[in-house]
């Protein structure tokens, strides 16, 4: 589904990604682990088309997104990729369900369909009863689940998560991890997760270790 070949990236004279090849299949949960500074976040941003690599090729299904203009690339990203970050970036002045709906509203989807889908997602994530609360009234785990629902609302082909449970206690982290696997089982959702969580890495379909800008084998 996604193929990366010979990816490199440097920031000034600092070479951060030193030649990465990667092949991710549909419905796979891939964990990327490695020491701080190894280049995990940078690689995830390249896979998510947020950063352009210096060299190498990224093939996403049938397309090569790196050949697109910035405008077209944004459109591509919005259609195909969902992001989950360690610090959920929910809007404090909107309720949980509104936060989930917003990316779909901005993307011009039909409002009735959005409401149905957002409710279904919150239900699936066991927080439908919190739908009308603002983020400040939700626990960290609940906020993170809202962020996950928001990442799913536009039905992305690929979810990229950067230390999604880094900010959660072990109970909430476990719930979130179970959710990733149920998304894979039910919807064949493809997920790439950068994590420092050993248990999550072990449960994944594949675990890749990054050492100094490369995958070690």
């Amino acid at each position: 589904m996604i193929k990366a070949q010979g990816i490199t990236k440097a920031y000034g004279s600092l070479s951060v990604i030193k030649g990465v090849d990667l092949d991710i299949h549909k419905g796979e949960v891939v964990a990327i682990v490695g020491a701080s500074g190894a280049g995990k976040t940078t690689l995830l941003q390249i896979l998510g088309t947020l950063e352009r690599p210096d060299s190498g090729e990224l093939i996403f299904g049938e397309s090569k997104p790196m050949l697109l203009s910035d405008r077209k690339l944004s459109a591509f990203r919005n259609k195909h990729i969902g992001f989950i970050f360690q610090f959920h970036q929910l809007l404090p002045e909107f309720t949980a369900i509104e936060n989930v709906m917003i990316p779909a509203l901005i993307s011009g989807k039909k409002k009735n369909e959005i409401i149905d889908r957002a409710s279904a997602l919150l239900d699936k994530l066991n927080i439908l009863d919190r739908a009308n609360h603002k983020p400040s009234a939700l626990s960290g785990g609940e906020q993170q689940r809202v962020a996950v629902a928001r990442a799913l609302i536009n039905q992305p082909d690929l979810i990229l998560a950067d230390e999604p449970s880094g900010n959660l206690d072990s109970k909430h982290a476990k719930e979130l991890h179970e959710l990733f696997f149920s998304l894979r089982d039910e919807f064949k959702q493809t997920i790439v997760i950068v994590t420092h969580n050993e248990e999550l890495a072990r449960m994944s379909d594949r675990r890749l270790t990054m050492v100094d800008g490369r995958f070690s084998s």
């Binding site: 944004s74 459109a75 970036q89 917003i102 990316p103 779909a104 901005i106 993307s107």
Partner: peptide
């Protein structure tokens, strides 16, 4: 103006 760019935008921070 934002509506005219529905394809490119989905997050508030992108807007």
């Amino acid at each position: 103006l934002l509506e005219a760019h529905v394809d490119e935008l989905s997050l508030p921070e992108e807007c």
